[in-house]
Amino acid sequence: MTPTTLPLSEPYGPVTCQRAGQGAPVVLIHGVGMQSAAWAPQTAALSLTHQVIALDMPGHGGSAPLPAGAELPEYVAWLHAVLQALDLGPVSLAGHSMGALIAGGYAVCHPEAVARVALLNGVFRRSPEARAAVEARAAEIRAGSFDLDTPLIRWFGESAADQTARAQVAGWLSGVNLQGYAAAYTAFARGDSTYADGFGGIRCPLLALTGDGDPNSTPEMAQAMAEAAPMGHAVVIERHRHMVNLTAPAAVTAALRDWLNTEGATS
């Protein structure tokens, strides 16, 4: 992979990413607290046939944070500025968790720029109870309370693959920029319904994928996203949780390859 820095103009500042491979472009966006390296298994596999660009989200890795108080639409606007700077034409766009919210919102707002979209472990129309819980966590993070163990317990099981991935993720979370983390988590907490009504206008192939053990990005949410989009398809990976692209990399990569081979858009 080749590290790259894009010097975007204000209000965005520099954006860092990892690039690999040649061919049709695939853009990957990670979740809150992660970085572009979290896509390493998929980058290695997909770059054999595609040009893969894994972005560092604002306030993560080497990317500058967004202004204080930014909500999900500001992250979608950031992505639009990044893709305009990259000048790739229509892209295959995949996001994980918060990245899935950004990717889904982008597909709603800029359908002409998206050839297909994949939403991994995304959230969609949380229940009032789930929304209250995640907004409470966001408030704690903004107040400076950073609990490393709670998300790790929620995201990982006891298998060897889970524990190996957990060690990687713990390292990324431990080094995260707390301001960028708090800002992105707040937008994540408030963004599950922001673009939900627009999914019917996503005319390209849409993949909604999650693990059957993910309590927050549930199989029911994946199915609802797939049903809301005209070319939607849901995949649920059994015996895996939130970081399924790391704990079940072969299964996720296979689903993404099928998605990349899905052509056409509805009229």
Results as ranks from 00 to 15, higher is better:
39 W>K: 00
43 T>G: 09
80 H>I: 11
235 V>M: 07
216 N>S: 15
174 S>L: 12
146 F>L: 15
190 R>F: 10
62 G>S: 11
94 A>K: 01
258 D>Q: 14
168 Q>E: 13
104 G>S: 02
48 L>I: 11
262 T>P: 01
127 S>V: 07
263 E>M: 09
54 A>R: 01
166 R>L: 14
30 H>P: 12
18 Q>H: 14
121 N>K: 14
97 S>M: 05
12 Y>N: 02
151 P>K: 02
34 M>N: 13
128 P>E: 10
154 R>S: 15
188 F>M: 08
173 L>R: 02
107 A>D: 02
237 I>V: 15
220 E>C: 13
14 P>G: 00
47 S>E: 02
90 P>T: 12
22 Q>T: 15
114 V>T: 06
234 A>E: 08
34 M>V: 01
263 E>H: 12
143 A>I: 13
123 V>M: 12
17 C>Q: 13
70 A>N: 13
132 A>M: 11
59 G>I: 07
244 V>Q: 03
161 A>T: 03
35 Q>G: 10
235 V>G: 06
14 P>H: 11
164 T>D: 13
248 A>V: 08
166 R>P: 09
154 R>M: 15
103 A>Q: 06
179 Q>L: 12
247 T>M: 07
28 L>W: 04
32 V>Y: 02
50 H>A: 10
110 H>C: 13
132 A>H: 09
139 A>F: 12
141 I>E: 09
31 G>L: 04
195 Y>V: 03
29 I>K: 05
